[in-house]
């Protein structure tokens, strides 16, 4: 999933304080799963903002809507009846959702309420960790299902580096050394010979190296 974290309340208060009517938008997908911007988080932020502005004596109206997906135009279209009743939109979706709403409603200010972080997985309740860097040319088949691009601090393809100690990374002792994880997994699979194979230099143009990317499925595209 795409993970995100709510921006500090102080920043959000400052970003909406010049508006009177806010449309607070949640998204029912990734940000719901990572507890950053689903229906519950929308209700909680709405409650907090209402209390703050009531205390300040600042007239403030808030309308809450959580879309099925904020990154799909079909769902964003559902906002048409409500958009004119708001001075600005405060979106708790990831950056994709914020941009889709801004693209559809060109004359409406759309503000982000979360910081979009990374593509990750749940490690345990309340903890999410980065797992994929979207490099566009997956190497997981050679690395025992552990990604050296997303999980090695140096993105080494033929690691580990000299900073690996006791299975941890020199950048932070809380970070597992990805190459230690790769080695352990290859051993468990009985495929340690894979470790000896050199992975050639990566062509980063499949990643962000050649600018913004697009996927076109000719059989589906209209």
């Amino acid at each position: 999933m795409i993970t995100a974290e709510r921006k500090p309340i102080e920043d959000l208060i400052n970003s909406v304080s010049s508006y009177r009517r806010i449309l607070l938008l949640g998204c029912n997908e990734c940000v719901t799963v990572c507890s950053a911007g689903g229906r519950k988080e929308v209700a909680l932020l709405s409650s907090a903002l209402q209390m703050h502005f009531m205390k300040e004596g600042h007239p403030f109206e808030i309308k809450e809507i959580t879309l099925e997906r904020q990154c799909d135009p079909e769902y964003v279209e559902e906002l048409v009846p409500y958009i004119d009743q708001a001075d600005a939109v405060l979106s708790m979706a990831c950056g994709c959702g914020v941009q889709e709403v801004a693209r559809r409603f060109k004359e409406k200010m759309v503000l982000p309420a979360v910081n979009t972080k990374f593509m990750g997985a749940s490690e345990r309740q309340g903890v999410w960790a980065e797992r994929c860097a979207g490099c566009g040319d997956c190497v997981l088949g050679s690395t025992g299902g552990v990604c050296p691009i997303a999980r090695c601090s140096k993105q080494l393809l033929n690691g580990p580096c000299g900073g690996s100690g006791k299975g941890k990374c020199e950048v932070d002792s809380d970070i597992d050394c990805a190459w230690q994880l790769i080695w352990d997994r290859l051993k468990a699979l009985g495929m340690t010979e894979k470790y000896e194979e050199n992975i050639p230099a990566k062509d980063w143009r499949t990643g962000r190296g050649a600018g913004p990317r697009k996927i076109v499925r000719e059989d589906l595209a209209s």
Binding site: R39, K40, V42, A43, S46, S47, Q50, M51, H52, M54, K55, I62, E64, I65, T66
Partner: peptide, 17 residues
């Protein structure tokens, strides 16, 4: 409570409620 918005108007504005 400095934010006693609801005492005169207890209607809940949040979708979750």
């Amino acid at each position: 409570n400095p934010a006693r918005v609801g005492r005169d108007n207890p209607g809940c504005a949040t979708a979750a409620c």
